[in-house]
């Protein structure tokens, strides 16, 4: 049962990685953490595809395809909604609220600052 032991080793190590990574998540982001973790377990889709690909009779195939639909909904929906949430977490608001304009102003603060510095120095 070497394979079994290998899987057990991986499982135990994954528990520690999970606790380590998640305990560093800021509490500001707990909702995206839940929905992101939620999306990750949608990877059961891989298992659903395997059982659907091996289904011999109609009933088995129907149930397996149901599992594929459910798992896909979990996976795709989870990542989409998490992305939508995280998109909203912005830093200090720049004056115009359009995303394009804020990206431009985020790129330009350094020259703007040197301009005012120059003016101050000239005064």
């Amino acid at each position: 049962m070497d394979d079994g032991i290998a899987l057990l080793t991986i499982t135990v190590l994954a528990v520690f990685v999970g606790f380590e990574v998640v305990s560093k998540v800021s509490s500001t982001l707990h909702t995206p953490l839940m929905s992101g973790a939620n999306a990750i377990h949608g990877i059961i889709l891989v298992g659903a595809i395997i059982v659907a690909g091996q289904a011999g009779d109609g009933w088995t195939l129907a149930l397996a395809l149901l599992a594929v639909v459910l798992a896909t909904a979990n996976l795709v929906g989870g990542f989409v909604v998490t992305d939508r949430m995280l998109e909203m977490f912005r830093g200090r608001r720049s004056k115009p609220t359009e995303p394009a304009a804020s990206a431009a102003s985020a790129a330009s603060p350094a020259p703007a600052a040197t301009d005012t510095d120059a003016k101050e120095a000239g005064r």
Partner: peptide, 22 residues
């Protein structure tokens, strides 16, 4: 573990850990 698929094991365990901590 049933399917012998490492990815499912790791992904599931990560989610289990995060859910437990939260």
């Amino acid at each position: 573990l049933v399917l012998g698929n490492v990815l499912l094991v790791v992904a599931g365990t990560l989610v289990g850990a995060s859910g437990t901590i939260l």
